[in-house]
Computed example of a mutant assay.
Amino acid sequence: MNITAFMNLMVILVPFLLITAVFTRMTILELNLPPASSSSNETKQELQLEVTIRKDALEVGDRHSGLIKRIDNVKGYDYKTLSEVMKQIKSRFPDKLNATILSEPDTSYDVLVQVMDAVRVAEIVQAGSVTRAELFPDVSIGDAPVHGKEKSP
């Protein structure tokens, strides 16, 4: 049996397929659960940054002092404004590394990833080049508290 023609085909085909193959790169992001409750030795002065994803807005706040900024959802979430708010908070608390993202149950995966990216890093343009600055890289994810519903007796 003459397999010379088949071997010639394989010698050409295998390198061609290896060169044109697209190799996927998977990125894994380590996430933490938010703490169950505040410890008694924790100071009330420390910022406990929370970003809450609601249907109608993104709410940036401190667990102890309340709402810092509400970014309304007009025609989609405004991730640029969220990133600017995160930069302002980082400038006031440069040593702070963790943040908690709280989302409602029907939040889409894409929205959650976009918010996580805006909280973790910011793109800064310097001298015509874009650099990435670290904001709050230690991200925890949890469920958002029920908004606007009060229990009646």
Rank of each mutant, 00 (worst) to 15 (best):
E46N: 06
R70P: 07
N73A: 12
D62T: 02
D62L: 04
L82A: 04
V60L: 02
E46A: 07
G61C: 09
I68L: 15
K75N: 13
L82D: 03
V74G: 03
T43A: 06
L82I: 01
L49D: 00
Q45Y: 06
V51F: 01
D62M: 06
S65D: 11
E59S: 05
S83E: 13
K55I: 04
Y79M: 13
R63S: 15
H64K: 13
G76C: 08
K55T: 04
S65T: 14
E46V: 07
I68C: 10
G61K: 15
K69Y: 09
K80G: 14
V74C: 08
G76R: 08
K44Y: 08
L58D: 00
E46T: 08
G61N: 10
G66H: 11
E42P: 07
N73Y: 09
L67V: 15
I53D: 02
K80F: 14
K80Q: 15
K55W: 04
K80L: 13
D78W: 03
T43M: 08
I68A: 10
D56Q: 09
D78E: 05
S83A: 09
K55N: 07
I53N: 02
Y77S: 09
V74M: 11
L58S: 03
T43P: 04
E50T: 01
L58C: 01
L58Q: 03
L82R: 01
E50Q: 06
K55G: 01
R54E: 15
R54M: 13
N41H: 05
K75C: 09
T81Q: 12
E59M: 15
G76N: 12
T81A: 11
E50C: 00
L82G: 00
S65E: 13
I53R: 02
Y79I: 10
V60M: 02
I68P: 07
Q48F: 11
S65L: 10
E59I: 15
S83M: 05
D56K: 11
E42T: 07
D62N: 14
N41R: 04
E46P: 00
D62R: 05
D78I: 05
I68Y: 14
H64D: 10
G76T: 09
G66C: 10
D62I: 03
V51S: 00
I68F: 14
D56I: 05
Y77E: 05
N73R: 14
L67K: 15
G66N: 11
N73G: 06
E59Q: 15
E59N: 03
K75T: 10
S65V: 12
I71L: 12
Q45N: 06
L49F: 01
R63Y: 14
Y79S: 06
V74S: 14
D78R: 02
T43E: 09
E42A: 10
G66Y: 12
D62A: 05
K75M: 08
G76I: 07
L58F: 04
G61P: 10
L67G: 08
T81V: 13
L58K: 02
K44G: 08
T52W: 00
Y77W: 14
T52I: 06
K75W: 07
K75H: 11
